[in-house]
Amino acid sequence: MHRKQATQLLPQTRMGGPMPWIIAIMVALVVLATGGALSLNRLASTANDDLAGSITVQIVEADPAERERQTEATVRLLEADRRVAAVRAVPQSELDALLEPWLGEIDPAAPSVPIPALVDARLVGPASEAELLRLESLLKRDAPDARLDAQADWLGPVFAAIASLQWLALVLVAMLAFTGITAVWLASRNALSINAKTIEVIHLLGGDDHQIARVVQRAMRTDAVVGSVAGFVLGLLALWLLGSQFAALESGLVAGGGLIWLDWLAIVLVPVAACAIALLTARFTVLLLLRRPV
């Protein structure tokens, strides 16, 4: 049967006032949750790549001359090691800048607190436990006060937090989908009961359930498309606002949170999926509710 005729079987009202809004809010929230989760994912994997082979050596020694000597020895030994790709002693000025927020301006002539020297190094492979132990014993003789840490270790809790945030986003998306399906179900059921008398007449004149499902589906289609597009725009706007807030921090880590095209594809799929789910739910609801004994 032709679509246009099917629509003339029931009054051409839309699903009702709140339906496009409900769909818009759902889509906006899902876009936001998806965008956030994907951003976190990018961020975590970029950070992981950067940090996987990085180690920091601290030379904790109160005497500045001894500290200087051990630092030089550390740099020399590490540079000589063939499994170390790059070594850099963090200059004093950088250290001061790092600590300034906590300790205030430091007088280089008479530092009130002994500050450890730092040497950053990047390994060829990942900074595994065994690798750290090997380097520690390498430094033991010439730089007894050196302490090695894999940078990834410091960020362990951060990665764990990111993982749980991603789970949270997934649960959120699932809950929003469930709520959306429920809303469409209720609206379709409502449409059926409002038009119960007409539907009975259509049945008696030989109309079948699929014709009625098409009418309800068509009414839902308008609402779903309007709601999804509006929600998508809202969600993107929110994502962009959040993104620019983070970008303002100019943190190296957050800069890695940029989404690649695959992520954008997933985000664009959100309103498309929302429309499809709304239409399928409407159809399924009608066919299920109309299937009754004669």
Partner: peptide
């Protein structure tokens, strides 16, 4: 059992529309 929201014309056309 006329359909209230349809005109006389549309009510009479209904069986034909249902039949496609």
């Amino acid at each position: 059992r006329l359909v209230e929201h349809m005109s006389a014309y549309d009510n009479i056309a209904l069986p034909l529309r249902v039949a496609g």
